[in-house]
Design a protein around this nucleic acid. Structure first.
Lengths: 230, 230, 230, 230
DNA sequence: AATGAATGAGCCTTCATTCAT
DNA sequence: GATGAATGAAGGCTCATTCAT
């Protein structure tokens, strides 16, 4: 889900596009592309300024449409917010669960693939912003927080639970409190996503790849059932 | 801007404090107590609703004063925000650095004391909210983000750096990328603080103490220089 | 900021205009007519109450629009004030300078035409209020005072200077300090404009036409180079 | 801005005055001096900023007292305004009428003495500001405007009426509309007072003395019954 | 008498939302 | 479908006024 944004380039000059012959849609824009262009613009601004501080004028301007057009697709600012979250979630789920389903290697390898898969599918993309959004606004939108919990948190935790339980069952991992370990494993991922959206105070810190490697390295050593444990 | 944190203890139950003052002083209070009463009320609401969505009327009402009174002590809503962050920072620093200075045990013990000290001093208190605030609003207040980075992030990281480097030098810990490890160690703490302020979707999860124990446990096994490494 | 002064004629009876629009366009008006409708309403109220004491609610109500509409055309109350002054200035200049350019009679006749031309173009219209506005608010808006000085005062004085110098050169007027005489000649005009806007204490006084005649009469006798001077 | 203002210097440091031994009142300030100190401060600010834009905090600060003290002497902001006007009127009246009563010279001389007497007693002092105040605020305070009209305008006009009628009766002046001539004669005086309080756009103009001389000169030639009239 | 902390009504300004074109 | 002028409720901020000390 890195793509998403041909909208940014194509919608730069929506009114003039006819003369340039985009080879795609010379004049009529595919109707079903508008909503995602709008949510993409909204995601950027919601993440940058927060929900309350984001003006719909700015969202519309960034998407290259008028303010009134927003209301052709979304009933209200809150509805737009919901759409932003929901749209950012669907692809994330599919990709993550697919990794687990298709995997055949060791639990350590599987854990690694999940971590770095998350990075490529979410952490490194603009979808990371959804994480920050949920954190920042969940108190104001308990309904959305609940939705996010049911659809994302639970399913994401289920993935990790499977990996950990499988690893323990196979003797690859130590015996430990699986539920709590899930939280501890996820936290650095979420924090990485949040850091990337809160800029300013983490720039000189290690880059994301190294960060993930270290996280994984510590985890493997922390989880693995080593000879020293005996 | 004198008082440190009696606010933490006295304002632990902010809804009751107003009823007390109602019977005492109808007007005229001690001027030096006001600022921390106001920042305490503001912290609660900023964390709950976000900066932009918090109304100064509500802040004033929670502190038991009128809206205009806020402006006797803070020039603007933004100035109030700065005061909230700054006031929440001072005690956090002192406590954390004191733990390190007075410690005499092993690096593992020291790490444990720091983790749980953070929990007692910050994570378990309302100061945890400052973490969420910074995450949510740093884009809108780069000046404050910078301030927080200089005064808190850097000093907090310095503490952990000392511990890790000492542990490695003493042969207690493995050789690893210290700077990155710091991030990975801190992340679950910050995430715990954030979770506590974003409620709704982490309630059934493990309690904080267990979470910290697991985090510490994984860390120790991940950091320790075991025979298995040879 | 295009339209010149249909506002003077069309908005001569501002209280009636609203009832007309009520039956015409409930929303949507011609966008280019709005600014002058708003400045016309603002001029009335600024003159009547002063800048600080005028509420934008009242300005909007008098113009028959909502309060928010003001901000579609003017960035702030102060910007509205500037527009009021600037819009009232343009026609005043054109008319006055045209009189001078096209005149062919004696200097006494020219002086008379200028005085009564001012009365018809400005003194007798709502533009007289701009004079009071400038007097009342110039301390608070030095920028506007400067603008008014450059664009109006200087050019108005230049007109009189030409007349006086021509009259002296032709032997129609006595030799006198032209610059100071300009001030003395202008003062009763400005004062007349101000009186008309400050009502209450000048009503029983002579009417404007008589006032101007007397001013002109005194001037002519005071300026003229008579045989008695020899 | 010359005389008048012992209040400015003496009230500069009201709280410290005891230690410095002002040779006047080491500690207790004469009670009856307070009101005029307050009205003096208020006059300055009302003239500078207008009534509505003047804050009582600033008035109190300029007078060297606290804001609450104002209410020991004046019931409201409007009451303070009335006091400012009334206090500025009394000396003006006495001085002007005295000139007329004691005069024994020609009507031209008498007119001259009145004009320059006004300048010395009012025009050149801070009392000139009262003129601007009345002009700016009369619409908002019709009661004060009425008061001013009854007590100042009428009496001032009476003075001039006497002079003009006497001059005409004696054959010194031409026959003319006395009432209107009064307005025309007064206007440049008021305008001079107003200009001095509206600064910014009359600075390069002639100085006040020259202005008055020219006004007087034009008047004399305009009023006088010359041979040329025959 | 004097203070200054506290109040709260009121105003400028913003912005989500509507709707005629 | 798309626009953008218009709306009006809401919030940040000011300041005249009060009153306990």
């Amino acid at each position: 889900m890195n793509a998403i944004v041909p909208s940014v380039s194509s919608s730069a000059s929506p009114n003039v596009s006819s003369s340039i012959s985009d080879t795609k849609e010379p004049r009529r824009r595919r109707k079903d592309a508008r909503p995602s262009e709008l949510t993409a613009a909204a995601l950027d601004l919601f993440v940058e300024k927060g929900f309350a501080a984001t003006r719909l004028d700015d969202v519309a301007a960034r998407a290259g449409v008028s303010k009134g057009t927003l209301y052709l697709y979304f009933d209200s600012k809150e509805a737009l917010f919901k759409a932003v979250v929901e749209e950012g979630i669907v692809p994330a789920l599919a990709a993550a669960e697919q990794v687990l389903a298709e995997h055949g290697g060791s639990s350590v390898d599987l854990l690694r693939d999940l971590l770095f898969g998350w990075w490529q599918q979410i952490g490194a993309t603009r979808l990371a912003g959804v994480t920050k959004l949920i954190v920042s606004e969940s108190r104001n939108f308990p309904e959305i927080a609940h939705y996010y919990h049911e659809r994302v948190i639970i399913r994401g935790r289920a993935l990790l639970r499977t990996v950990l339980q499988r690893g323990i069952a196979r003797g690859e991992f130590r015996q430990l409190d699986v539920e709590t370990a899930i939280d501890v494993i996820i936290a650095p991922l979420l924090m990485l996503a949040i850091w990337r959206c809160s800029l300013c105070f983490c720039e000189q810190e290690s880059d994301a790849e190294t960060y993930l490697e270290t996280h994984f390295d510590l985890l493997v050593h922390g989880l693995r059932l080593t000879g020293a444990q005996i």
